[in-house]
Simulated assay, not measured.
Amino acid sequence: MTQRRTLHPRSLVVGCLSFFLFTFSFSIANGQPAFFEPKEDYYKAKGRSLRVKWEIEPPTVQVSSDFRATLVITGAQNPTEIVKPDLRKLKAFDVFKVTDIADPPRDAKEVRFAYKLAPRNTSVKEVPELKFHYFNASAAPGPKQFPSTRAEAVEITVTEPPKIERQIVPLDAPEFLFHPVTGQDVLGSGPFVPCQWAWLAAACFGPLAAFGWLLVWRRVYPDAARLARLRRSRAARRANDLIRKASRTPDPPALIANALLGYLRARFPLPESAATPAEIATALKDQNVPDEIAERTSDVFRACDRARFAPSGDNELALAATAEAAVTRLEALA
């Protein structure tokens, strides 16, 4: 059997005391005992005798207006290591709106921390005192190494902002304009009631304006309709020329189909997705082309597809004639 060992209370006390002495000795060796370091109002300043004070400019200020408050620290041995007090975290400064501003350069003689303070109301009478602990290495080890000083409170005067008085300017106008008018003269001859002719004119104004605009448009653009017809006939002539030249190409059915499809895209706004005979027929029907003409046009594309895989013969001539007839039927719809 194994024998269990128990920790003697005296050994526990000796161990805790040894750890405390080691920690305290280590803190002393590093310059200051952290065990006694104050939890509040300590900003890492070191020195034998520090002095702090407030400098206020100006001492009289309006509500919600800023004035400059500078905390001046003299006698510090570590000016670059001092932490700037955050006045926003101190309850005594809740009566101010605190704004940090840039500080002047620090030197060995003094450290200056600058703030902008804006009193929230006229009940504020002073800039509160600020307690300031620092570390004195020459003092006896313990709490006495962290003496405190304070920046005494400074009285200020807070005033209300000046009230802007409205200046009353008398009106310069004829006397009769200041006398009220009563009776029937106020409304004159009574409210305006339109007659029947006015309602009739209002109803006819819209159609007449549209018809007049049509006449003006035709006057300004007399060739618009003729140009539209010319574009359509130009597309038909181009398609027929390509169809007649198809017999002199290596693949006449393909050229006939492409010529007819190009004509349809120029003559009718067919979607780009319409490529097969069935899709072309559906697209033509959507453009109000009669069903018979749409189907006969799609048959031309089907015949072209069959001819591309059939033996050569008179198929090219028949396809060309059928395609030209389809163009003629579609042109007749214009």
Rank of each mutant, 00 (worst) to 15 (best):
K163L: 08
A239T: 07
K285H: 08
E152Y: 02
F178N: 01
E272I: 07
E316S: 12
D41G: 08
W217L: 10
P38A: 05
F135S: 13
L270V: 09
T182S: 10
K89L: 15
P128I: 07
T2F: 05
L21P: 03
P38I: 04
T297K: 00
G31H: 03
A239E: 07
F20N: 05
Q3R: 07
S298E: 02
I28D: 10
L319V: 12
I101E: 11
V14N: 07
V61F: 07
P9E: 01
A102L: 12
A139D: 12
A321Q: 13
F22G: 11
D223H: 08
D241S: 08
A102G: 08
F20H: 03
S11E: 11
A259G: 09
T80F: 09
E316W: 14
A278P: 02
L215C: 14
R296Y: 10
L200Y: 09
F35K: 05
H133K: 14
A326M: 05
I28Y: 09
P85C: 07
P207A: 03
I256C: 06
T2D: 04
K144W: 04
Y134R: 04
L319S: 04
L255D: 00
V193W: 12
P161G: 01
A34G: 13
F19G: 10
D286G: 10
H133F: 15
F35N: 06
A140E: 15
A203W: 14
T249E: 13
L255A: 00
L187G: 12
A228C: 05
P271F: 07
A325K: 14
G262N: 11
G31Q: 10
L270P: 05
R232D: 07
I82P: 01
P33E: 15
Q145G: 12
T282M: 07
P38Q: 02
P9N: 01
S233I: 10
A326D: 03
K131R: 09
K84A: 12
C195T: 10
I56L: 11
V127F: 02
P33T: 09
V111S: 11
A307T: 06
S123P: 03
L317T: 15
P147Y: 00
T249S: 09
A278T: 13
E57Y: 11
A332Y: 00
F146L: 08
K131S: 11
T157E: 08
K97Q: 15
F192R: 08
E331T: 04
